[in-house]
Design a protein around this nucleic acid. Sequence first.
DNA 1: AATTGACCGGATTTACAATATGGTCAATTG
DNA 2: CAATTGACCATATTGTAAATCCGGTCAATT
Lengths: 196, 196
Amino acid sequence: MTGPKKSVDRRALIVEAAGKSFSMFGYKATTMEVVSKIAAVGKGTIYTFFATKEELFGEIIGQLTKELRELAERTIDHERPFFDNLSAVLHELLLFRDKHELMVKLSQEVRDIGTPMAKDGIAKLEQAITAFIQQEVVLAVEKGEIRSSNPKLTAFVMLKLYVALNSEWSKHQEPLTRKEVAGYFNELMRDGMSVR
Amino acid sequence: MTGPKKSVDRRALIVEAAGKSFSMFGYKATTMEVVSKIAAVGKGTIYTFFATKEELFGEIIGQLTKELRELAERTIDHERPFFDNLSAVLHELLLFRDKHELMVKLSQEVRDIGTPMAKDGIAKLEQAITAFIQQEVVLAVEKGEIRSSNPKLTAFVMLKLYVALNSEWSKHQEPLTRKEVAGYFNELMRDGMSVR
DNA sequence: AATTGACCGGATTTACAATATGGTCAATTG
DNA sequence: CAATTGACCATATTGTAAATCCGGTCAATT
């Protein structure tokens, strides 16, 4: 797919440069001009690999999605109980979010100026995360570890709940520690709250 | 508090006019001029009752909050199980939200142009709703119907979950029916999802 | 004492010129 | 000749200065 190496792999240079620029400046403030400068390549060259700015951005988001999936796969141990894996992965994902400049920058851009493409990028990432959770939910259901009539909905709810606990709660209240979040999340998801 | 009636109760006229205007045009597009016109009152008169536009808006939000609380109180029957009451109230609240022009208009304004005061108003409403749920959670814990280590957090999570199921899910997926939402919500909150 | 609307200063909108940017392609290069 | 490039084009975005709008005041009026 990547072909034999020429003098330099210009496509790789461009992708790397684009990653840097989107992370540093966000979607809107990244110009094709600047990407070409960082990649030390003519602007026209970018267009031999990517038809539009959107497409280039898509490549970067795709890369990030892949990284995310790999991280999750590395974290999950199918020997362990479902809920242990779940909280471990969600924990990793949120650390990842804090650490990963691109996601932070995009979230910020969406919040501040609502750039549609940035919104789109975040949505793709979230979509990838729920798809992954969903897959694990299905597996756990098959193993008889949990009940779920609608895995997609379950995955969606899990992510929403985790984000609510982690980000939204702290907008108005004292933030919860990682441990509190994990504890509460697990307890509720596992056993509900009626007295047994 | 309201004092004996004069020729006409100008304060009431103003509050009614403001309610109409905020509902029709939102916070930003409501001008004191227009409120005075609807109330058939001089602009200066408004300022004998309300020091600022913010304060007038606060009065309207307060009114709405009161209506909300009354609706919830009317719906709850403390003879019934906690979860029955919970879904009945949430059901009513969401109908209310759809029906109530002011809430709809404010949500829209927050989404479209992010008017800080509109955001504030919605936040106050949500705050009132969670406070109410919280109170019911405490009651149910005392009655030994449910477990909850942190009623405020529990109330917050309940509202978030219900909104996620009702509004956010339908942004990307086929909307759930009221019955599906209630069923899923109840099942998860009551029993969790681990196999017992 | 209560009410009013003309009026004020600052905020917002408008209209438009200046600039920046995504994308193209004829010229250039190796 | 295939790959690369940056000057160039049309449109989108931004800066800006004038015009308008609006929250709030207060002297005049009822």
